[in-house]
Deep mutational scan, measured.
Amino acid sequence: MIINNLKLIREKKKISQSELAALLESSRQTINGIEKNKYNPSLQLALKIAYYLNTPLEDIFQWQ
């Protein structure tokens, strides 16, 4: 199971779900699903999230 700190990191950087979704060329619903652990992002999307949040991938997503 993958757990994530996306919501915590996103809020700390003062970025809304909609703003992050626009940067990622994704939907706000996708970001919401990832944050609620209802959806696991593809590797490509996970890497883009890490890039746009300027945060190491392993700080956002962790195996448990």
Rank of each mutant, 00 (worst) to 15 (best):
M1V: 09
M1A: 06
M1D: 03
M1H: 06
I2P: 05
I2R: 10
I2M: 09
I3R: 10
I3V: 14
I3S: 08
I3N: 06
N4R: 02
N4E: 02
N4T: 04
N4K: 00
N5E: 03
N5I: 07
N5F: 09
N5M: 08
N5L: 08
L6E: 04
L6P: 01
L6W: 00
L6M: 10
L6C: 09
L6H: 01
K7E: 09
L8D: 12
L8R: 14
L8I: 14
L8W: 08
L8Y: 11
I9S: 01
I9Y: 09
I9H: 06
I9P: 01
R10K: 00
R10M: 07
R10E: 03
R10P: 03
R10V: 04
R10Q: 02
R10F: 07
E11F: 07
E11R: 10
E11G: 06
E11N: 09
E11A: 08
K12N: 10
K12S: 14
K12F: 10
K12C: 12
K12I: 10
K13A: 12
K13I: 08
K13Q: 13
K13H: 11
K13F: 11
K13L: 13
K14M: 11
K14W: 06
K14G: 15
K14N: 14
K14I: 04
I15Y: 08
I15L: 13
I15E: 00
I15P: 00
I15F: 08
I15Q: 02
S16D: 04
S16G: 07
S16K: 08
Q17I: 14
Q17M: 09
Q17E: 04
S18G: 12
S18R: 14
S18A: 13
S18L: 11
S18F: 11
E19H: 12
E19P: 01
L20F: 05
L20S: 02
A21S: 06
A21I: 04
A21Y: 02
A21R: 03
A21L: 04
A21H: 03
A21F: 02
A22C: 13
A22L: 12
A22M: 12
A22W: 10
A22P: 03
A22H: 13
A22Q: 12
L23F: 12
L23N: 07
L23R: 09
L23P: 00
L24R: 01
L24W: 02
L24M: 08
E25A: 13
E25R: 15
E25Q: 15
E25H: 15
E25I: 08
S26T: 15
S26W: 07
S26F: 09
S26G: 07
S26R: 12
S27K: 09
S27A: 06
S27C: 08
S27Y: 04
S27E: 07
R28W: 15
R28Q: 14
R28P: 15
Q29D: 14
Q29H: 13
Q29E: 15
Q29I: 10
Q29A: 14
T30Q: 09
T30D: 05
T30Y: 15
T30V: 15
I31E: 01
I31H: 02
N32S: 14
N32D: 15
N32H: 11
N32P: 02
N32Q: 15
N32M: 13
N32A: 15
N32G: 08
N32K: 12
N32T: 08
G33F: 13
G33W: 14
G33S: 15
G33N: 15
G33E: 15
I34C: 03
I34F: 04
I34S: 03
E35R: 02
E35Q: 03
E35W: 03
E35A: 03
K36C: 12
K36M: 14
K36F: 06
K36D: 13
K36L: 14
K36N: 15
N37Y: 07
N37L: 07
N37Q: 08
N37A: 07
N37V: 01
N37I: 03
N37W: 10
K38M: 14
K38T: 13
K38Y: 13
K38Q: 14
K38V: 13
K38N: 11
Y39C: 14
Y39R: 10
Y39S: 07
Y39D: 05
Y39L: 14
Y39V: 14
N40C: 15
N40Q: 15
N40W: 13
N40V: 15
N40G: 11
N40H: 12
P41S: 02
P41Y: 03
S42R: 05
S42H: 06
S42G: 09
S42A: 05
S42F: 04
S42M: 04
L43V: 10
L43A: 06
L43H: 10
L43R: 12
L43E: 05
Q44V: 11
Q44W: 11
Q44L: 09
Q44H: 12
Q44F: 10
Q44T: 12
L45I: 08
L45W: 03
L45Y: 06
A46S: 05
A46H: 03
A46Q: 05
A46G: 07
A46D: 00
A46P: 01
L47S: 09
L47W: 08
L47F: 08
L47K: 13
L47G: 06
L47T: 10
L47I: 12
L47R: 12
K48L: 09
K48Y: 05
K48V: 05
K48H: 05
K48E: 06
K48R: 13
I49Y: 00
I49G: 00
I49W: 01
I49A: 04
I49T: 00
A50Q: 03
A50I: 05
A50T: 03
A50N: 02
Y51M: 11
Y51D: 07
Y51E: 09
Y51K: 10
Y52H: 12
Y52W: 11
Y52M: 10
Y52E: 05
Y52V: 15
L53G: 01
L53S: 00
L53D: 00
L53I: 03
L53C: 03
N54H: 10
N54Q: 14
N54V: 07
T55C: 08
T55A: 08
T55Q: 05
T55N: 02
T55L: 06
T55G: 04
P56L: 06
P56F: 06
P56D: 08
P56H: 06
P56G: 05
L57S: 02
L57P: 02
L57Q: 01
L57R: 01
L57K: 01
E58D: 13
E58A: 12
E58H: 13
D59Q: 13
D59F: 10
D59N: 09
D59E: 14
D59L: 12
I60D: 00
I60W: 03
I60S: 01
I60K: 02
I60F: 05
F61N: 00
F61R: 00
F61M: 01
F61A: 00
Q62G: 09
Q62H: 07
Q62A: 09
Q62D: 04
Q62K: 12
Q62L: 08
Q62I: 10
Q62C: 09
W63A: 02
W63L: 04
W63Y: 06
W63D: 02
Q64E: 14
Q64K: 14
Q64D: 14
